[in-house]
Design a protein around this nucleic acid. Sequence first.
DNA 1: TTGCAAATGTGAGCTTTCCTCATCTTTTTG
DNA 2: CAAAAAGATGAGGAAAGCTCACATTTGCAA
Lengths: 212, 212
Amino acid sequence: MGENGLGTMTHSVLAARRMPTQKRSRERVERMLSAATALIEKAGSDAMKMSEVAERAGVSIGSLYQYFPDKTAIIATLAERYNAMSCHCIGQGLAGVQSMAALRDAFSDLIDTYYAMFLAEPVMRDIWSGTQADKALCAMELEQGRVLGKMLADVVIRLKPAAEADDVATKAFLVMHLGEATMRLAIATERKEGQAIVDAYKQMVLADLLAD
Amino acid sequence: MGENGLGTMTHSVLAARRMPTQKRSRERVERMLSAATALIEKAGSDAMKMSEVAERAGVSIGSLYQYFPDKTAIIATLAERYNAMSCHCIGQGLAGVQSMAALRDAFSDLIDTYYAMFLAEPVMRDIWSGTQADKALCAMELEQGRVLGKMLADVVIRLKPAAEADDVATKAFLVMHLGEATMRLAIATERKEGQAIVDAYKQMVLADLLAD
DNA sequence: TTGCAAATGTGAGCTTTCCTCATCTTTTTG
DNA sequence: CAAAAAGATGAGGAAAGCTCACATTTGCAA
């Protein structure tokens, strides 16, 4: 599962030791990230060894550390790509909404899509369900929640101009963050219960969001 | 902050290598746990070194490993004690509820108490906000959610016998789990925003819980 | 083309931390 | 009181992250 269709965005989380400027090194960095992806899919990011990443990418350990200051930087780079992808999806889903009824449907679809993405992407699952030990990863999740929260808040404010902006912002932030928590919970349980949990989340959140 | 008033329950998470039966060893195990607590408070469980725990407890590394199969076992033991404590609190809070209005008040108080506990206990914060990388810890959190969810579901079923039991159970499980997620989020933000987030959570959940 | 500076690549091995085990000491028990 | 069981010790094995002194390749100006 080498190529993952996530584009070729360069990493920028925690200033890499060196930015790849030549074509050769850019390709090598992509190989490193592909190797890391494959290894995470196989056994999780915790079990991923830097030496294995280097070997699989056909690169020396020294090269690996030239572009990623430490192990978490590789994982953070992958996480950043997935984040960008899901932010884009969610943004698109919310963009055209013109009524509360449309919001309800859009939100419901969007959660289902997000859930399907979690289920389908082993790396995403691994990163968000396991490795939250890392501070940088935690900060990224928080930031992600803020971005998604803002998207949702903007829509709600647009549809309900009378609402208190601060309250809406807080609630939207919470709703999006709890969405991620719900995904984690759903994934950690049986498939059927997982779906029931996601449905319960949608129902609860939508009732609150649509209330006036 | 040596003694923490959490009682002297023995650990039982992942069968310790050896159970302390003599008085001497039981005291030593308590010293190990106190040392671990102090070190986690100082710099987090990630930075906690087994050699430091042993030294601070006035014990050899060998002894430490005689009672805790690995590093996570110490943390899991502490987590188990905090879990038992919070389960007890929450159980008490929900026990005497006889009406939906009382449930609303009890739930609100209970969440505030839980939040205060999170804020006051550095070790609890550390364990639940950081070290979720460990599978045993994740399983414990899930189990904790199930136990708390059952408590809440029992109360709701008692007050609304007409409700579908499965739906209530799923929802209660989700609500309790999202409660923990909310705590984590609140703790990760500024104190004032944290309180607003907790309030938003309470409002959202209660509206759903009290709906008929 | 050529030569040189900057960029890139290498991997042996240093460091840190978890954890084991052979051996010794203390306590309990028949 | 002697044997057996429980408890205690700490040097050192092992694994993985990461460094650094040195080798190679590339881009570019003369």
